[in-house]
Write a protein that binds this DNA or RNA. Structure first.
Lengths: 197, 197, 197, 197
DNA sequence: GATGAATGAGTATTCATTCAT
DNA sequence: TATGAATGAATACTCATTCAT
């Protein structure tokens, strides 16, 4: 009984915390970090305003947790998708595909992660992502397959900027251009940009 | 006498206004729109807090003026630089060069223009820039020189994201990579991304 | 348990709200709408300045609530007092009596209601009051009991002005003239003004 | 030459002062003491904001001067009009007539004088006016022509309230009731209220 | 005298955060 | 744990008033 009571309390606590997270996601996505108050979040979650501080140390802690969590999930999603890629093109395409697939299912958190308020959080993920591509290019440079003028760090930043901007642009209104087309275009740009004949 | 009296006041006014603009540029670049108060700006400019409102209707008006003004100057700078480009490669290179040249001389305002608080202001400029490249690609598509899978609108967004991110990354610490290398890399990526073969 | 918890908070809230209302009444009565700040009211009520806004949307909302509430209470007071008047003289006297009786118990709110900052709120009440007298005079005009030169709308305004001014004058220092004398005088003036011969 | 130059300067100064007075009258009448800034007045007068303080010590000094000046002019106007009244009815009628005549020509200053912001200034005038009537009634009381229950001070306040309210009501929109009717009505009320058969 | 830029105290209002219940 | 009333520092913005030119 003591056990079941405790687990009921634990479940209730987790439930409240989850509702606050959900509210934070929705509101931050729409209005940004500074356009949302802790009262807004608590009200949206259906709890009292003081309850917020039983679960998060302050507003930016919640925001940060959302960003970090989203990053981890997105990273796992991408890793899973690219585990069995046959070749470079397959890997790049799988990565881009996973990115847009995730974004389609997680518009709000993607907006938060790449919306600018997240600081480096969003970019770091793509950074790692792009760096892995750029690193591969170092070999090409070494073997002469890529001109020396393509500096890997610049390339990495360029790819990150490209992906995050197209991502945000597309999820704002996914209708105009078919997902498949976006993915194909980005894959081609990346490959041509990194691997010119 | 009346003239000199008037011009003294006018000069004083313009001077104060200029100091507020300068303070705004420095503070907005460092702390963003929401990290700065009108009192901060006034104090930094060495004037009383009420003086701010003699020159700008509110904080965002000052911010907006900085962004719009920077955009106009940057646009003029780029246009001037690309007026006499011989061919496509020359034009692209001149544009990128002008962009980084301007950014080097105007780090703070560039940070403001592309920092995210400017809304569409910064992107619109690059949009026009990138669109002109992408538009050129429509012809290539029409003439079969570019695969249909390269969607112009996606390409445009990709180029804007690439340029703005590399720009912000580079001016944060221009030492690691030589300006010339950055420019050359971006030029190549753009051309290869837009003009395969 | 939940009930007592809720009622404790509710009681506390109502208490604070009441203290703010009381402070508002005292300060508005003494210094008028423009001579009082929300900080003044909060300080007088012994709460923090932000607390004011948990209970009223702004200063004029509090002022308005006081005026409207006072009007309602005064109206009820007068209606109750005149319910069983036997004739015209009795009704008029009962009304005036009720007005001064109420004013004696509610000096501050009366000052607010008729002090000029209330807009039409105070006058409307007396207007209805005076109009009912003036309307009665229309019949007298129709039946020839009152000269045509007595215009009902003018009479109504005149009675309102008379009552409100004497009221404000008297509660400022009720000693000089006995309440009974004031009431009797006003009753006579009203009747003679409206019902000559 | 020195004389004429001085007189030119004096004329100019008086001119500026007059324009400020005119602007003050217009703006105070429309928006009240607290709804007008010294900048508003200066702008309306076509002078610099600092100029205001060369002519008036502060905003309330201008307001007060307008009220006092209006009172003096109105007083003179009434005295002139009643100088040759034949009997009591003639005097009362002449007074009321002069009051409305003046008000019709001086709507803005009347609004200021009786608008509530003038403190006692406006009322004092009418007070003196009404007191002179009430004083006359003391004799009637002494000689038994007026019942003792009519207390002169109350009567005085009542008449002041009546006159000032009807006055403000009427000049706000003079069309509904003909001036002649208003005057006749007020005269009758005053006489019946003070001099019942 | 006149100008008008500048001052800075005053006022309203918001909101992250605390704490008694 | 949860509540929600209360806090008070932070911030925006106004405006009567001064003063160098």
């Amino acid at each position: 009984m003591s056990v079941s009571r405790q687990s009921a309390a634990t479940r209730s606590r987790a439930n409240t915390r989850g509702r606050l997270l959900t509210s934070g996601v929705q509101l931050f996505a729409r209005h940004g970090l500074n356009g949302v108050t802790t009262h807004d979040i608590a009200r949206e979650a259906g709890v009292a305003s003081g309850t917020f501080y039983l679960h998060f140390s302050d507003k930016s802690a919640l925001f940060h947790e959302i960003a970090v969590d989203t990053e981890a999930r997105l990273r796992a999603h991408i890793e899973e998708a690219t585990a069995y890629a046959a070749d470079l093109r397959g890997a790049v395409r799988a990565e881009v595909e996973a990115l847009f697939d995730f974004a389609e299912q997680n518009r709000d958190t993607i907006r938060i992660l790449f919306g600018g308020d997240s600081g480096a959080a969003g970019s770091e993920l793509l950074n790692a992502f792009a760096t892995s591509i750029a690193e591969g290019r170092r070999r090409d440079i070494a073997t002469g397959e890529m001109p020396l003028e393509i500096e890997p760090r610049v390339l990495s930043q360029a790819l990150v900027g490209m992906l995050s901007r197209v991502l945000l642009w597309w999820i704002e209104d996914p209708d105009p251009v078919a997902r498949e087309t976006v993915i194909e275009t980005l894959t081609r740009i990346q490959l041509s940009g990194t691997h010119p004949i």
